[in-house]
Design a protein around this nucleic acid. Structure first.
Length: 952
RNA sequence: GGGCGCGUAGUCUAGUGGUUAUGACGUCACCCUGACACGGUGAAGGUCGCCAGUUCGAAUCUGGCCGCGCCCA
C-alpha cells in the first residue's frame, strides 16, 4: 500500500519489504503506516495519483524532469564514465598557479577495500575535488601495495586450505602463487575505487613492486648502506616461529595473558643444602641459562655472589652474578639469564663478558634443539616443552611452587604466534639520525598533524625510536640488494644487480636470500610514486605533496617513516599536512576489522544505498577524526539527505524559465524580499564556514554546516516562505527575483556539496542551467559573491520565531489541523513591529492562522486566547471553544524565567561582581534581568486575563 | 608499570572563562500540506563523571579521585 502510490508505474523492487531486510526503524515505520488508518492513506494516494496524471503545464517552464525518486544506481556509473571520458582527473603536467597533490595510501593487495578505506577516500576526495574546483592543479595518485608479509600470510593460509604448504614450494613457485593472488585483488580494489567515484588520476597508477618502485627501493637502500645508516648485525629480534621470519617491533602486539609462574630451585654446585630460587614463566628456556643474576644491593644474596649453582635437568654449572637490571621485588629476586632468548638477559650478559658463550636452544620454528637440551626434550615445541619441563622439575624436586601470573605477551601481528626473542643476523636501519629531521619538521610546523592532539604521541615515539629490523625471511618482497662474494667474502651493494664482486671482481656472487620489510618501499611512496629517483616532471610539479590522509593506526609504521624518508632522500617534508581519521566501529561499538568480520563490503553498501550516501555517511554526523560507530542509521541519514537535495532540485526545476542562463551573482536591493536577502546571507555564512572548515581539515564540520544549511535554512524555511512569491501572487518583479535567488542558492549548494556527493550533484547540476561540461571541473564560486546581510538575518529571525510560537500554540491548544484561528502579536519593539507588519502574510500562511493583528504596548490581551511570551514579544492565538483550561506551557515558561531572573539578580547584588566584572558584562546582566522581569510580568498579566491565578 | 587522550540528554556530538549548553539519531504528539513520509510541524529529554581549588563568574582553567580508550614496557 505504501508503494502503490500511482506516481511511478514501474514496480520498484527495493520497496518490497519481502525483498530486503528492513532495518528495525523502517520496519517500525512500515507497521505504523499500515496502522495509521488504511482509509485515510488510500484517499491520499488516490489524490496524489490524480495529481501526477495531470500535466504540469500550469508551470511548464522546463522540459527537464528528474525521476521522482533519487536512485543512485541509475546515475553513478554514468557519471563515473563521463568523468573518465573527459579525463577530468588527469593532473596537468604543467600549469600555472597553485598545486594540490596527494597520494592514496596504497591499499594492501592482501584483500579488498574495507570501510576504513572508504572513510579515508571520502576525506581525500572531498579535499581533491574542492581544490580542483578552486582551480588548483590537482593530482591524486592511486596505487596498491604488495604488502609483503600481510599478503604472504594470506596466500599461505589459502594454499594451506588446498593442502599445500607454501614453505615446501620453491622460491619461484611461491612468488608466482603470491603474484597470482595479488593480480586478482588488485583488480577488485581498482573496481572498488572506481565504484566509489574517487577522483584519482588513473593515468598515474602505481604498484609498490613495479619497475619504478624496484629502482626506488634499491636506490634508497644503497644510499643508506653507503651512508652507514643500514647495517647488518647479530641482534635480538622478534622472531615469528610460525612464519619463520624476523619482524619489526611495530609488528608485535603486546597482549595480557595468563601464565604460570614457576619457582624453581637451582641447587648449589658445591653440594651445600639449599640453592637459589628463581621465578620464571619460561622454564623450558633453562637449558640455555648461563647465570643467575641478583640485584647488587640485595642483602639476601650478598653471600651468594660468586658462588655457582647447577641448572636443574641440564646439570650445568652457572655462576650467580650481580646486575642492577634485576628487579629484587619480582618473584624471589633472582633472575635466570638466558641470553639468546630474552632481550633483557642478553643485555645483562653483555655486561658480564666472562660468562660462558650462550647456546641456542630453539630452532627457527621454536622447537627445542641443540646440545644443551636433554634428549627427553629434544624436538618439542615451546608449549609442550614448558609443560614437560615443569613435570620433570616437579618429579625431581626442583619445583618449589607455582603461581598464576598475568603478564604481557608479544604476539606476531600477522600469524598471531607468540614472538620468540631470538638472536640472529639481520639487516637494520639506524633510526635516530633519520628521526631527527622529522621531529624538527613537526616541531617547526613545516608538517602539521590534524587533529593536533596526536603530536605528543608522535614525539614520544620518535624520541625513543629503536633501530628498524628490515630483513624478512620470506620469498615475497623486494630482495635485499646485497650480494655476498664467495671469493673474497665481501658484500657488493649496488642499485643495478651486480654481475661481479665490486671488491675482487669475482663472479661467484650469492644474492642475499632475504627480502625487505614492505615499509622500506612504502615509506618513499610520496616521491617514489611520482618517479623518484628519476627527476621527473611530476616530481618537480607535485612534490612535496600537500596532504596525507590516513588512519591513526599506521602513524608509526608509515607516516613517521615517510617523513624520515622524505627528508633523507629529497631533503624536504613529503607533505605539509597529515590528517588522521578515526577507527570505525560497528553499531555495537566494536572496532571494525577483517578479523572480526564485522566490516561490510563497500560494494554491497554502494549497490544498496549508493556511493554518494556511503561517502556522506562517512563524514556526517560522526566526526571523521574520532573513533565512532557506523551503521545503517548513519547510512540512512545520508541517503535521506541526498533524497532531500534531489527533491529540492525537483522543486526548483519548474521555476527555471526555459533557456534561463546559469545563475550569476545575485543582484538584490534593499527593496528586495526579506526571504531572498535572508537566504543569500545564510548561504554566504554557510559557504564561508564550509570553506574554512575544509581548509582547516575539518571535513565533518564542513558537512555539518552544509547539511544544516541545505535542509533547514534552504528547504525547510526559505522554500516554504518563497512558495508565495513563486506562485506569482505578489507581482512580477518579485517572482523574477525569487526565481533567480532560488536557482542561485540551489546551484551553489550543489557546488559545495559536490566534493562530498559527486554523482548526485553532477546529475542535478546538469538538470539546471549550467556552464561547461562537468560540475567536477567547473569553476569555483567564492562565498563572497553573496552579500552578507546581518539586518536581514535578524529580521527573518523575528519572522521565523513568531511562526514557531504560533505553531507551538496551535499544538498546545490542540487546534484541529483544518482550522485557522485568528492570531495577535504584541512586538517587543518598533523594529520587530516593522518587520512583522511587512511580513504579516508570510507569518499567517506558515503559522496557519486566519489573520495576524499587531497590538500596541497598551492594548490588552485579546479575550479567549492562549498566549506565549518570548523575547520578541507576545503571541496570542484564539483558543478552540472546547479547549482544556489553563496554559501549562505558560506556567512552565514562567517558572523557568523566574529561575533565570533569580540567578541574574543574585549576581547583581553580589558586590564582587559589580566591582570586578567588566562593565559591559554588568550592563548586559542588568538588561537581561530587566527583560526577564518584564516577561514574567506579561505572563502574569496574561494568566490574569485568561482567568487563571498567577503562579506563586 | 609508564605515557597520552577522552568522560556533555537513551546514543553520537558541538562548544577553550559570562550562551536560557549546539546539532544529528532515537523518543512522544499532530499532520499525506501542489518537491520530498527516505517527509513536515511541534514537544519532551542534560545536577556537562565525582570532589576540591582558582575566579566576581567554570562544561571550559588547576589538582586529586573514579571510569573508558589507545600507545609503550
Amino acid at each position: 500500500m505504501v508503494r502503490d502510490r500511482g506516481r511511478d508505474p514501474r514496480p520498484d523492487p527495493r520497496r518490497d519489504p519481502a525483498d530486503r531486510l528492513p532495518s528495525p526503524r523502517s520496519r517500525a515505520r512500515l507497521l505504523r503506516a499500515a496502522d495509521h488508518g488504511a482509509r485515510r492513506a488510500h484517499r491520499a494516494c488516490a489524490r496524489r495519483a490524480a495529481r501526477a496524471r495531470a500535466p504540469r503545464e500550469a508551470t511548464g517552464l522546463t522540459d527537464v524532469t528528474l525521476a521522482p525518486r533519487f536512485d543512485p544506481k541509475a546515475i553513478e556509473v554514468r557519471w563515473q564514465e563521463a568523468w573518465a571520458r573527459s579525463d577530468a582527473f588527469r593532473a596537468p603536467s604543467r600549469a600555472p598557479g597553485a598545486r594540490f597533490s596527494m597520494v592514496l595510501p596504497p591499499p594492501n593487495v592482501t584483500g579488498v577495500l574495507t570501510l576504513g578505506h572508504i572513510l579515508g577516500g571520502s576525506v581525500m576526495d572531498a579535499l581533491a575535488r574542492w581544490h580542483r574546483m578552486r582551480g588548483e592543479a590537482t593530482l591524486w595518485v592511486p596505487g596498491v601495495d604488495h604488502a609483503g608479509l600481510a599478503t604472504y600470510v594470506e596466500v599461505r593460509r589459502r594454499l594451506a586450505k588446498e593442502g599445500v604448504r607454501i614453505e615446501e614450494l620453491t622460491r619461484e613457485e611461491a612468488i608466482a602463487a603470491v603474484d597470482r593472488w595479488r593480480q586478482d585483488h588488485e583488480r577488485r580494489i581498482v573496481e572498488q575505487l572506481r565504484a566509489g567515484g574517487f577522483s584519482l588520476d588513473w593515468s598515474r597508477y602505481r604498484y609498490t613492486m613495479d619497475a619504478g618502485s624496484v629502482r626506488a627501493t634499491r636506490t634508497a637502500f644503497v644510499a643508506l648502506y653507503h651512508d652507514g645508516l643500514v647495517y647488518r648485525g647479530e641482534r635480538m629480534v622478534n622472531w615469528d616461529p610460525v612464519l619463520r621470519t624476523a619482524v619489526s617491533d611495530l609488528e608485535v602486539q603486546n597482549v595480557e595473558e595468563d601464565a604460570t609462574l614457576a619457582f624453581v630451585r637451582y641447587p648449589w654446585a658445591d653440594g651445600t643444602l639449599g640453592g637459589m630460587e628463581v621465578a620464571t614463566v619460561r622454564p623450558e628456556t633453562m637449558f640455555g641459562d648461563v647465570a643467575i643474576a641478583v640485584h647488587p644491593d640485595d642483602a639476601r644474596y650478598a653471600e651468594a655472589l660468586g658462588r655457582f649453582v647447577i641448572v636443574p635437568l641440564a646439570h650445568r654449572r652457572v655462576p650467580v652474578i650481580a646486575d642492577a637490571a634485576v628487579d629484587p621485588t619480582f618473584g624471589a629476586g633472582a633472575l635466570k639469564i638466558t641470553p639468546r632468548h630474552d632481550p633483557i638477559d642478553r643485555e645483562i650478559a653483555l655486561r658480564h663478558p666472562d660468562l660462558a658463550t650462550p647456546v641456542e636452544i630453539f630452532d627457527e620454528s621454536a622447537r627445542l634443539t641443540g646440545s644443551g637440551v636433554p634428549a627427553e626434550f629434544h624436538g618439542l615445541d615451546r608449549s609442550t616443552a614448558r609443560a614437560r619441563t615443569l613435570e620433570a622439575l616437579e618429579r625431581e624436586g626442583f619445583l618449589v611452587r607455582t603461581e598464576r601470573y598475568r603478564h604481557s605477551v608479544g604476539r606476531s601481528e600477522r600469524s598471531n604466534a607468540v614472538i620468540e626473542p631470538r638472536l640472529s643476523m639481520q639487516w637494520f636501519v639506524r633510526m635516530a639520525p633519520l628521526a631527527a629531521p622529522a621531529i624538527a619538521g613537526v616541531r617547526s610546523g613545516e608538517i602539521r598533524l590534524h587533529p593536533e592532539r596526536w603530536t605528543p604521541t608522535f614525539f614520544r615515539w620518535m624520541e625513543g625510536i629503536q633501530d628498524w629490523c628490515i630483513s624478512r625471511q620470506v620469498p615475497w618482497g623486494h630482495p635485499i640488494p646485497v650480494s655476498h662474494c664467495r671469493a673474497c667474502g665481501q658484500d657488493t651493494v649496488t642499485i643495478d644487480p651486480p654481475t661481479q664482486c665490486a671488491h675482487c671482481g669475482s663472479r661467484d656472487l650469492t644474492p642475499d636470500p632475504d627480502v625487505l620489510d614492505t615499509w622500506m618501499t612504502s615509506w618513499m611512496w610520496p616521491f617514489a610514486s611520482l618517479g623518484w629517483p628519476e627527476r621527473t616532471e611530476d616530481l618537480a610539479e607535485y612534490y612535496p605533496t600537500s596532504a596525507l590522509v590516513t588512519g591513526r593506526d599506521i602513524v608509526f609504521f608509515w607516516v613517521a617513516r615517510m617523513m624520515m624518508a622524505g627528508y633523507r632522500f629529497t631533503g624536504r617534508a613529503p607533505f605539509s599536512d597529515v590528517y588522521f581519521t578515526g577507527m570505525l566501529q560497528d553499531e555495537q561499538g566494536h572496532r571494525m576489522s577483517k578479523h572480526l568480520g564485522n566490516s561490510p563490503d563497500p560494494l554491497d553498501l554502494i549497490s544498496d544505498r549508493g556511493a554518494d550516501a556511503l561517502r556522506f555517511a562517512m563524514l556526517f554526523p560522526n566526526p571523521v577524526s574520532e573513533d565512532g560507530p557506523f551503521g545503517t542509521s548513519t547510512l540512512d541519514g545520508a541517503r535521506n539527505f541526498l533524497t532531500k537535495v534531489w527533491n529540492l532540485v525537483r522543486f526548483t526545476l519548474p521555476h527555471v524559465p526555459p533557456g534561463a542562463p546559469p545563475p550569476a551573482s545575485p543582484e538584490l536591493s534593499s527593496s528586495s524580499a526579506l526571504e531572498n536577502r535572508w537566504i543569500l546571507a545564510r548561504y554566504r555564512r554557510a559557504a564561508e564556514e564550509f570553506d574554512a572548515a575544509l581548509a582547516g581539515f575539518e571535513p565533518t564540520r564542513a558537512a555539518t554546516v552544509l547539511h544544516g544549511f541545505v535542509w533547514h535554512d534552504l528547504a525547510d524555511r526559505y522554500v516554504e516562505v518563497a512558495k508565495e512569491a513563486l506562485a506569482g501572487r505578489r507581482g512580477d518583479p518579485l517572482l523574477r527575483e525569487t526565481r533567480s535567488t532560488l536557482l542561485f542558492v540551489v546551484e551553489r549548494a550543489l557546488r559545495r556539496l559536490h566534493p562530498f556527493a559527486p554523482h548526485v550533484t553532477e546529475e542535478l547540476w546538469h538538470a539546471l542551467p549550467h556552464d561547461g561540461d562537468l560540475l567536477a571541473t567547473s569553476r569555483w564560486t567564492p562565498a563572497d559573491e553573496a552579500p552578507a546581510d546581518p539586518e536581514a538575518e535578524v529580521a527573518m529571525e523575528a519572522v521565523l520565531e513568531t511562526i514557531r510560537l504560533l505553531r507551538n500554540l496551535r499544538a498546545e491548544e490542540q487546534v484541529p489541523s483544518g482550522t485557522t484561528p485568528p492570531a495577535w502579536v504584541r512586538p517587543a519593539g518598533p523594529e520587530i513591529a516593522d518587520v512583522l507588519a511587512r511580513e504579516r502574510a508570510t507569518v499567517a500562511r506558515l503559522a496557519r492562522v486566519a489573520s495576524l493583528t499587531l497590538l500596541a504596548a497598551s492594548d490588552p490581551a485579546p479575550a479567549g486566547t492562549a498566549g506565549r511570551v518570548a523575547p520578541l514579544g507576545e503571541c496570542y492565538l484564539e483558543r478552540p471553544a472546547d479547549a482544556p483550561t489553563a496554559s501549562e506551557a505558560l506556567l512552565r515558561e514562567r517558572e523557568k524565567l523566574t529561575g533565570l531572573l533569580a540567578k541574574e539578580r543574585a549576581r547583581l547584588t553580589d558586590a564582587g561582581f559589580r566591582s570586578r566584572a567588566p562593565p559591559s558584562v554588568v550592563s548586559e546582566v542588568e538588561e537581561k534581568a530587566r527583560d526577564l522581569a518584564e516577561r514574567v510580568r506579561r505572563i502574569d498579566d496574561h494568566l490574569k486575563a485568561a482567568g487563571s491565578p498567577p503562579a506563586g
